[in-house]
Write a protein that binds this DNA or RNA. Structure first.
Lengths: 226, 226
DNA sequence: GTCTATATGGGGATAGAC
DNA sequence: GTCTATCCCCATATAGAC
């Protein structure tokens, strides 16, 4: 029963501290923003101290980057894996628009399901990150996203052959914006419409988003006269 | 030629200082975010000092609120005025979907045209504000928006009678998100796609946005089998 | 790996002279 | 209305003992 607190065979305690810091940072950054979440508050919540955070991450900014990367990397891998599968299954025609949008949107919205907070904190941070003032954070996020965007751009261009490359790029931008704003938290919905909407039913949220985005992405270039 | 620097008949000098502070705050908040733009930096850029800012606005938060309200109020008045006009002109049927979306999106995107910076700073702040961590700022923005949202919700429900109230509300939320993210600045587009897109041609941007949003708002509830 | 204590700098707000 | 000087608090990061 030797209580090997810091057994050299593993660094279990170190990993636990790191995890606690990431969890605390995630919650506080979601609540107060990157600038508003002080290392003091984060380390207190994590049950450690300033020195530990700098020992494990080197700086506050690096901690913030780690918070984003921790979940975003698996999400993007999942997206690319699903895209590969769909492309293999669909032959020469390529996956349908609905399939592509579902693959792009689904993992982000649904990913947090098994997390203790349902992924709400991460989703909020991630949705805000793209318009974040701090350029380092933005670039860190965009770096993770770049490959996925390129892959999806090619796939969308097959599913929407009538769009010019420029128009397609704009529509992808609009799609990302819709998604980002949705997962960043619908403060507006709750504020303006009270509790009319259930923001917790993620499955039907994904369905609604996919419908809306498919309609927007496939909109005709000429305004209908109906 | 009595140089009445502080003539009691008007408070011109005070107004100039106030304006400079708003201009400086707008630029710096757009660049660095609310938390990142210190009053010291703002007042230096405005050519004054800390005390002046607190004299005119009372606090940093109030200054930030004033920055948003200064342009948002005219934008929302314009939106409501255009909506009134369109409703009067369209009779019982109500304005078309395209008309409504154009009225909702146009003023925000186009408003800054006559501003010295083309409205870019304000647009960026405004697009970020809805997902801002600071609750006071968010609520201030939502307060300005609430009436417009309610009016447009009623108008959209006439133009899209086949949608359930809940689905319509979600789609409005998606629309606002697309718009907010678009005006918040397309860091993504520039980062991922280089200079492939022209982010300065506001007229065609509005056209593209309206097309996309009309497609999304009017998307059928059942996924097409095509 | 973890902690206490501290170095160093910057923040918002205000008092009081002009 | 404007400014200088200052109060007081909080931030990040690190040194050095354990």
């Amino acid at each position: 029963m030797t209580e090997t607190i810091s057994d050299p065979i593993d660094t279990k305690q170190g990993l636990v501290t790191k995890q606690s810091l990431l969890d605390a940072a995630e919650a506080l950054i979601a609540e107060r923003g990157v600038a508003g979440a002080s290392l003091r508050a984060i380390t207190t919540r994590a049950g450690t101290n300033l020195a530990a955070a700098n020992y494990h991450f080197g700086s506050k900014q690096a901690l913030a980057r780690a918070v984003i990367a921790r979940h975003l990397q698996p999400i993007n891998s999942e997206r690319l894996r699903l895209l590969d599968e769909a492309e293999a299954a669909s032959g020469d025609a390529g996956p349908s628009l609905e399939t592509l949008v579902g693959i792009f949107v689904g993992p982000v919205v649904r990913f947090g399901r098994e997390l203790p907070d349902g992924g709400r904190h991460f989703a909020q941070i991630c949705g805000r990150a793209m318009t974040q003032p701090d350029p380092m954070l933005r670039e860190s996020l965009l770096g993770e996203l770049a490959e996925a965007i390129r892959r999806f751009r090619a796939a969308f261009s097959r599913a929407l052959p009538e769009l010019s490359p420029e128009e397609l790029l704009w529509r992808i931008q609009f799609m990302v914006g819709t998604m980002a704003h949705t997962i960043a938290g619908s403060q507006m919905i709750e504020a303006v419409h009270g509790d009319e909407l259930d923001t917790r039913d993620l499955d039907s949220l994904v369905d609604r988003l996919v419908r809306f985005l498919c309609g927007g992405l496939s909109a005709p270039m000429e305004v209908s006269q109906s």
